[in-house]
Design a protein around this nucleic acid. Structure first.
Length: 280
DNA sequence: CGCTTCCTGACT
DNA sequence: AGTCAGGAAGCG
């Protein structure tokens, strides 16, 4: 569900509520949510008494750095939500875990599809999800530059959109912002990555950064499930130019936006602004 | 690489 | 009944 702007918004809204707080109890209600350690009782025992020093983010991972070492890592995947309440609120239908903090507030982890998960990792890396270890540069950092993007695209016959979604290439882009960035750059999502020229790559890089920064400013997209750490919706949904707009007119040229499938993912594009070269 | 799978629900 | 969903690991 959430991509870099949504996860960053959650981090910002959650940080003031959890930093410096101690977990006095953890209700780990769902074995699937406990990725490491995998048993809920052990997970709860290890988390109890730990204090959150700071809340960070890497790609789409949220990192609760714990005082004295180690971290609690949360990945929301498609449908996960983190929701803080000043007191023990009503339990959401798909509540999978609840952390009780030492000021009587609670942090709820809600995940209808149970695709997301929580990890308790040590400083030596034990328990860290593999995907976090192989993450590419942060999309909104100097480490992600046009030359870095060019190197990732070079020589590859796969669709350019699939490369953008590869977290090992760049961390934080998901299906929404990939479509938005490709439209902003005027590049067809199924275009062969290796076929992009220097100017294409620079436009694409700029469009990625612009789309993600706009998403952060607007506090994310709230299509259905996403909310920030305090349950508020983001404004980015109304600013999307292609994602979710198949069949509606392109804001740039008026052409009816198309809906297709690229790399197994639903994809929206403007057939005129993003015209593919012959044979892609 | 690209396709399938994980999981559960909403919608056509 | 079939399709789709903001993600990513796993398997040929």
């Amino acid at each position: 569900m959430p991509e870099l702007p949504e996860v960053e918004t959650i981090r910002r809204t959650l940080a003031p509520h959890v930093e410096g707080r101690t977990v006095v109890a953890a209700d780990m209600d769902d074995p699937l949510t406990c990725r490491h350690p995998a048993d809920p009782a052990g997970f709860a025992t290890r988390l109890r008494g730990r204090t959150v020093a700071s809340l960070g983010r890497r790609g789409k991972y949220l990192l609760f750095e714990l005082r004295g070492g180690g971290r609690l890592i949360v990945h929301l995947r498609m449908a996960g939500r983190l929701w803080w309440h000043a007191g023990p609120d009503a339990r959401e239908r798909f509540l999978r875990a609840r952390l009780h903090l030492d000021d009587a507030s609670v942090l709820d982890y809600i995940d209808m599809r149970r695709l997301g998960g929580m990890y308790l990792a040590d400083d030596d890396g034990t328990g860290t999800p593999a995907g976090l270890l192989t993450l590419g540069p942060e999309a909104l950092s100097p480490g992600f530059s046009p030359p870095v993007l060019a190197a990732a695209l070079r020589g590859r016959r796969t669709a350019v959109k699939s490369v953008l979604l590869d977290q090992r290439v760049v961390a934080g882009i998901g299906n929404i912002y990939a479509d938005e960035a490709l439209h902003g750059a005027g590049i067809h999502p199924a275009r062969r990555a290796g076929a992009l020229r220097g100017p294409d790559v620079r436009r694409l890089h700029a469009a990625i950064v612009a789309a993600l920064e706009e998403g952060v400013r607007a506090q994310g997209v709230s299509f259905s499930l996403y909310r920030d750490g305090e349950g508020r919706k983001g404004e980015m949904g109304e600013r999307l130019r292609v994602y979710g707009r198949g069949g509606q007119p392109c804001y740039t040229c008026g052409t009816t936006l198309a809906r297709t499938r690229v790399g197994g993912r639903g994809t929206a594009l403007c057939p005129r602004c993003q015209r593919p070269p012959r044979g892609l």
